[in-house]
Design a protein around this nucleic acid. Structure first.
Lengths: 152, 152
DNA sequence: CGAATTTAATTGAACTCTCAACTACCGTAG
DNA sequence: CTACGGTAGTTGAGAGTTCAATTAAATTCG
């Protein structure tokens, strides 16, 4: 058992800042969406993904893959969103195993109503505070981390 | 109602990379700790905070404040950690409302055993992939975001 | 063809976290 | 000294997520 490669002081400081800012940012985004739209952050991105798909429709498994949600997570989420009338689930004509999740007009309207407020929150919390240079740096850093986590 | 200030394409790309890398990184960290130490990420930091405190002891509310956890979240977490024998809760002699959470030897041992593997995960997922320059950039960016979210 | 494997999706239990309500104790002002 | 506002902490319900088990349809291959 080799001695562990501990973090340097610089790395520790960066890591704690990262974890804390993430924690608070996630909480802020979740709270804003919950308060103004009655949905968790995860549901917002399901609405976004469906709204960007042809016919506002995606196979459950493709939707899960594109958002990197587990199938179980997506099933539970879509079940709840279906109860609210935001999404419909239809059998896939070409594959009996698959289900097609489709955004309803009601779901589209919910997204359209909540998007401006949510984007405003993201702006005020993040992008209004960063220089264009920092935005580019952030993306590069996240991309490097993603490359290691997301083989796709 | 002014027209919403949408994100620019650069901001959108950065935002999606950020959200996805966060999601996957959080999942990876949680999975690693759950698998190797049987605890969620949040519990790990409770152990760390207590291990760094004088006498391995902190008032519940100070612990909550330092980690930015809600009191309720901390109560539930500590209840679970107490059942596992990692933490003890004693009445505070100077203030009848307060409770002092103390790390037990068992809890200290659990932390000592899980820390190397966890740090290795953080290294391999994050710091081994970033240049020192990027680590500094990351910290600055997170600090800017923190300044807006954490008045303290 | 028909058995075995893989893929799509759901289910339910266990767990964590949030939120609102509640108990108990402290400090202070009348 | 007692009433009152604030602080410390817990509780329980509800919601979302994970994980393992299950169902069912498609695909592969001997």
């Amino acid at each position: 058992m080799a001695s562990p490669r501990w973090l340097t002081p610089e790395e520790q400081a960066a890591w704690r800042a990262y974890l804390l800012s993430n924690q608070l940012l996630d909480e802020a985004l979740d709270r804003q969406l919950q308060r103004d739209a009655g949905m968790p952050h995860a549901y917002y991105w399901i609405l976004v993904a469906l709204s960007e798909a042809p016919d506002h429709t995606l196979r459950m498994s493709d939707l899960a893959r594109s958002l990197r949600y587990s199938q179980s997570r997506l099933t539970h989420a879509v079940t709840s969103m279906e109860r609210r009338g935001w999404v419909r689930r239809d059998r896939c004509p070409s594959d009996g195993r698959s289900l097609l999740a489709a955004l309803t007009p009601e779901g589209m309207r919910t997204l359209a109503e909540s998007a401006p407020g949510h984007v405003e929150e993201v702006r005020s919390r993040v992008f209004d505070r960063l220089t264009p240079r920092q935005v580019a740096q952030l993306q590069e850093i996240c991309q490097v981390i993603l490359d290691g986590l997301d083989p796709a």
